[in-house]
Design a protein around this nucleic acid. Structure first.
Lengths: 346, 346
DNA sequence: CTGTTAGCGCATTCAT
DNA sequence: ATGAATGCGCTAACAG
């Protein structure tokens, strides 16, 4: 003998609570609240009043389950949110997807490859509508699995390995080549390289650009001046200090990302040499360091926004698929962001 | 005449798919997958094999709905993720809640007060397990509503207004007073103030500290040297430039946050004066600006982690509540992070 | 225009 | 040790 459903305090009101209060069926209440026009205006008002009185908000969890679509969430997989590159990416992504009513779930992996696998699996289990990832390693099977499972995946700043997906890249090779060429054109012949671990795609592409610039100029690139593996400024500073302490030290350094550039800057300042400095990624206060500085610049906000747009398109496509015929996936897209050089300093 | 459920390609496998493949009931499969011991080892293995073969992952949406608890998501409400203060906060929060299997949903409001209201309501509708917020304004009714609705709320860097909740604060008043006092002790008598809009709690507290330091020293604080309302470095630079252009300009500036400090730095450098500079918040490269700089420092990562911990405790408390008696909420906690001064520069 | 039936995927309760 | 029934909150698909 079920009691007449009392809206228990503490528990959020359900559709049925609203329906009972308005003395209609749950279905009618549902229609009103989703603005289905096929309801008598008088009834509509009663339901609306009841919902307002109860402070009713539809349970999105139940809604997701029933509708079978996703949850309106987008997963964002990055290695280190404290790095301004990633936080700007996150902001760019969020600004675009939010316009489609989607929210962003962040997954910060901190370089942990296994963690990234679990994270992606968990996002899929949570039925996110899509995933934007900057994978830490070059093994992308976990992302491939997600994509196979029907979850749209967009990669940012790295191309997919071993599967197909949309991606937004930066012209890593071209930018690095151009910056290195500029150092060479200024007469530098021994140029050190500081970069991320070899497994990171951008790092190796940027190293390729550095090497290519040397080849373009008909000059050798001295492998003993290449230091890869630094992820944080402290490590980069250490590596740079080592390079500057060589018997025949480099007269210039090229760094593959902002973490390494900052570390190298500190090393140069500390040793008091007048080593020239160039690097990939612009960063706040780069103009204020009192040192000449050549940076490879690109629109990092736009990178995030583009990733967001690519994902939103795929999500829309998937939503439509139910109604239309399954017409195969549109070709995967690869957007490459151009780079430019900026000069800072005295 | 229902077909024997074929695991349709593209659609993720369900518990029933696993059960059929293992030739058991859905219930048994469910038990196995949740490590319920009351299953025959042989059956257990069959189910596990079937799940592995199908790549089964439980649908977390359905799980949430059934269990009636939250979704394992934590909402994080901030105004600007591009500001390193907020991205560090996000990282600190995420690192703590992730240890409890929770994921962080970011909501970036960009100072939009209405947007913040909607965002919070949406997070509640999505059944997040809790919310950590740095509200943009001083009207906290939307947060109060969430808290009333049974969603634990923790405020970071601002105290709750008009309702009760846990919060983590920085010693805004004390830090600002100390920094201003230091400027005064160096003989500065005209100290400008640059800060966020008056509605921002931290800004007004820090202004109070600035004023108190003057009072402590028995000196007047000249209201005409106070500029509030700057949110970004460009605006701060503009305001600082105005101050420095006064007939009787300040000989020192105190800034209520890193955005204003950076703007003030640019203004000082551009005008070439030797104005002393102090500010709230440490920031990357503050040591490299070639200017003496006094900063109020605190552990901003710990701030995020503390907020995360407070929230996790509340969430655990709520989980337990079902089983135990409803024993009332533990008293709300207010953690204040201490500040210190750091000196940078030549 | 409104209500009834049914089920999304899973887990709790109660059988067997 | 296993299974059947039931319902979380919501909404399509069909009545009426």
């Amino acid at each position: 003998m079920p009691e007449p459903r009392e809206s228990r305090a503490g528990q959020p009101p359900t559709l049925r609570d609203v329906a009972e209060r308005a003395e209609v069926s749950a279905m009618t209440a549902s229609r009103v609240l989703r603005n289905d026009p096929r309801v008598l205006p008088a009834t509509r008002d009663r339901v609306r009043a009841a919902a307002a009185a109860l402070g009713y908000r539809p349970n999105e969890v139940a809604r997701s389950l029933r509708l079978g679509r996703g949850t309106g969430l987008v997963g964002l997989v990055v290695t280190n949110l404290a790095n301004p590159f990633y936080s700007r990416l996150a902001l760019g992504v969020d600004s675009v997807v939010a316009a489609d009513g989607l929210k962003t779930v962040i997954g910060n992996t901190g370089q942990d490859l296994d963690g990234e696998r679990d994270l992606v699996a968990d996002l899929v289990a949570r039925r996110v509508d899509g995933i934007i990832a900057v994978p830490a390693g070059s093994d992308h099977r976990h992302l491939a699995a997600a994509a196979d499972g029907g979850v749209p995946v967009v990669l940012a700043s790295r191309p997919p390995e071993g599967f197909d997906a949309d991606c937004v890249l930066v012209d890593d090779f071209g930018g690095a080549r151009e910056a290195t060429a500029r150092l060479l054109s200024r007469g530098h012949r021994r140029i050190g390289f500081l970069g991320s671990p070899p497994a990171v795609h951008t790092g190796t592409e940027r190293l390729r650009g550095y090497t290519a610039a040397h080849a373009d100029a008909g000059l050798p690139a001295d492998a003993s001046l290449v230091r890869q593996g630094q992820t944080e400024p402290a490590a980069a500073e250490h590596a740079a200090t080592q390079l500057l302490a060589l018997p025949d030290p480099p007269t210039a350094l090229f760094c593959s990302n902002n973490r390494n550039t900052i570390g190298a800057f500190r090393a140069i300042r500390a040793t008091g040499t007048d080593t020239a400095l160039a690097g990939f990624d612009d960063f706040e206060l780069a103009d204020a360091l009192g040192l000449p500085l050549t940076l490879v610049d690109y629109d990092s906000d736009e990178l995030g926004r583009t990733a967001g747009r690519l994902l939103v398109e795929r999500i829309r496509e998937r939503r439509g698929e139910d109604e239309r015929q399954t017409e195969g996936v549109a070709a995967y897209r690869r957007v490459v962001m151009p780079t430019g050089l900026v000069e800072y300093g005295s």
